[in-house]
Amino acid sequence: MSRPNGALTESAWVRRLLIGIALAFFAVFLLLPLVVVFAEALTKGIAPYFEAMQEPDAIAALKLSLAIVAIVVPINALCGLCAAWAIAKFRFAGRSLLLALIDLPFAVSPVIAGLVYVLLLGSPGVLGPLLREWDIQIIFAVPGMVLATLFVTFPFVARELIPLMEQQGNDEEHAARLLGANGLQIFLRVTLPNIKWALMYGALLCGARALGEFGAVSVVSGHIRGQTNTLPLQVEILYNEYQFQAAFAVASMLALFALITLAVKALLERRYARELGHH
């Protein structure tokens, strides 16, 4: 009897066991919570579900969350692109320090990140008196929440781009320059097309995280309903008030966004893989 994959066929049971464990884990820890979110949201039926979502505070929270994403994603995409460009294409003093700093938001607990902004910009903080003098409110207001989200989600784009840009090197840019292209033409016609899928992928991850960020935003938010509550904060408030069905209804909005993100991500990954393949 021929056994082409001798080593593999022999451990058929081991294989099944491993796959089984993975699937069980996936079902219990990933799929089940998702199902629970929607099930709990729909316990009282369809009508209360949509009612909970149409609650003015819930709509305000949704609007604020989307506004923060709309501000944060472009800024971080641009800054991340600049940082990645500098790190991947040039050698300069302080380069490794910058590289380490980019990862800082991932290393620091989001709550600490939020607290840093409170201590820096809040009324007792370093810049607090100055800001009060000019009548600028940052902490416990939307600007603070944007800043905290910016900090927490900064690494996504840069980390996605740096390895790709390093792998691609400078030769194409040099070739373009020698053919007579100016800086802007090189960027728009050579650099950007080479990284566009990775850039979108990074921006997508950045957006998903910005939408769901809780810790940092919670610290700098004033928790004022209808004004400084994002979706995750709204869920927490409703849950603490024992309004479980409403809490899960709002949570299901976040879950829905997550599913959409996942679908777009899968689509991008396919294009992104091809971008990596071109070399």
């Binding site: 194409e172 040099h174 373009a176 020698l178 053919l179 100016n182």
Partner: peptide, 16 residues
């Protein structure tokens, strides 16, 4: 960009 030189790279450097 103003020197008008043709340059051929070892690893081609074609715009992929």
């Amino acid at each position: 960009r103003d020197r008008q030189v043709g340059f051929v790279f070892q690893h081609y450097a074609l715009f992929r």
